[in-house]
Design a binder for these strands. Structure first.
Lengths: 215, 215
DNA sequence: GATGTTCAGTGACTAGTATCACAAAGTAGT
DNA sequence: ACTACTTTGTGATACTAGTCACTGAACATC
């Protein structure tokens, strides 16, 4: 069991040097997360750095009235940037993270991930790269909300979905509306339009993406 | 001259340990920036970490059509998080930064700011804290765009302005409209409404904020 | 103080999105 | 196959914000 897990970690994080992998194995815990389960909640205190080993997480923001919007997805081999920034003094999470599929996460105690920054070059690089990637993805999300109409945002959303989980999207219009902080009817109408151009085809709880570039 | 500057730096960054201040003095350059001047452009390669010594910078995002929206302000004693993330491999800036007032910035060569992470605890903490603060501010901006109407966004904008440069706001409606990616007429109407509630009073190129909490 | 320029105020219209109400289609359980 | 439930489709309506066209006020320059 331990050996398989270690190999798994090595597979997902090949850039880590051997001694770091050993430390990860020795001091971190692996947690199984079920589809739909919340990995992190707004306001929750963070004591661990979260790495994703398998599955898919969505990271999103939620306001007081329960509205939400998607920030980005986390794929295996990546880390929750928020959990890395909350190291030192028991800070609170500003975001929500939920498992889109069953997933496995590695939890590394904050004080260790802090130490490793100085100790392991590969860890340090990984952390900086994670910050940067998340920041950039956040900027893309921001752009799409600030500058684009809902039609373009929907296309952007679908494209992102295709990238992380393929051309067969199993979501109801309601779920999509929620993640874009819009309403079901509007999403239905826009999807219908996309179907008419031939970019996608629609069935119940199912969207098949043909070509979103032509739109 | 050098001595004054060194004391300035110490004043703005009291958390830095003495040897670090010495290094900053020795290896960084100070650049005077005039009001309205661009400190950083989207797509520009970044070779320095930027610290703000005096004045006020606005950091914003711009799209292909020249639309923009404000991400946040940088005040003296803070750093451009983007410039810190672009260390290693000559990355490009994703953002614009412009001087709102005359300003002085410290430019630290990227390779040094990288080294200092391991060498100086205070630098390391400063960098992490900067990431976190910018990330949080960005999330607030994102919230206001995603969840709120323009009226609330305007109040949010005015509040932020009061925080960084006081209750007397010397801006035209046009400039505000630009930063919120809206149009002049709409901003004029919303400001008028705020004036009617007594929250602000309006004159040409001038807004005096009385109390934005009541709104 | 006449003139040109920038800034602000306002009404009319339009486009995009949200909301409401309801119908139709698909799915699951019995 | 009947029922209950979920999902999708669609028209009518309302609201927010953007656009256009124009007016008047404040300021600068000469």
């Amino acid at each position: 069991m331990e050996i398989t897990q270690k190999e798994d970690i090595l597979n997902k994080f090949p850039q880590f040097e051997q001694p770091l992998l050993v430390e990860i194995m020795a001091h971190s815990t692996i947690r199984q997360v079920e589809e739909g389960e919340e990995v992190m909640r707004t306001g929750q205190y963070i004591r661990s750095t979260v790495l994703l080993l398998s599955g898919l997480l969505k990271v999103y923001r939620e306001d007081d009235e329960g509205n939400e919007f998607l920030m980005y997805y986390l794929e295996p081999g990546s880390a929750c940037a928020m959990s890395m920034m909350c190291t030192a003094r028991d800070e609170q999470s500003q975001i929500m993270a939920k498992a889109v599929t069953d997933a496995e996460v590695i939890l590394i105690p904050s004080h260790l991930s802090e130490q490793w920054l100085a100790k392991y070059k590969s860890w340090h690089n990984f952390v900086i790269a994670s910050y940067r990637q998340r920041f950039e993805e956040l900027l893309l999300t921001l752009d799409s909300i600030a500058f684009k109409g809902l039609d373009e945002r929907l296309v952007f959303y679908l494209k992102r979905h295709v990238k992380v989980s393929g051309k067969e999207i199993r979501l109801s219009h309601q779920q999509i509306a929620l993640e874009l902080n819009s309403s079901r009817e509007v999403i239905s109408r826009l999807l219908k339009k996309l179907e008419q151009t031939g970019a996608i085809s629609l069935q119940r709880n199912y969207i098949e993406v043909h070509d979103l570039e032509v739109v």
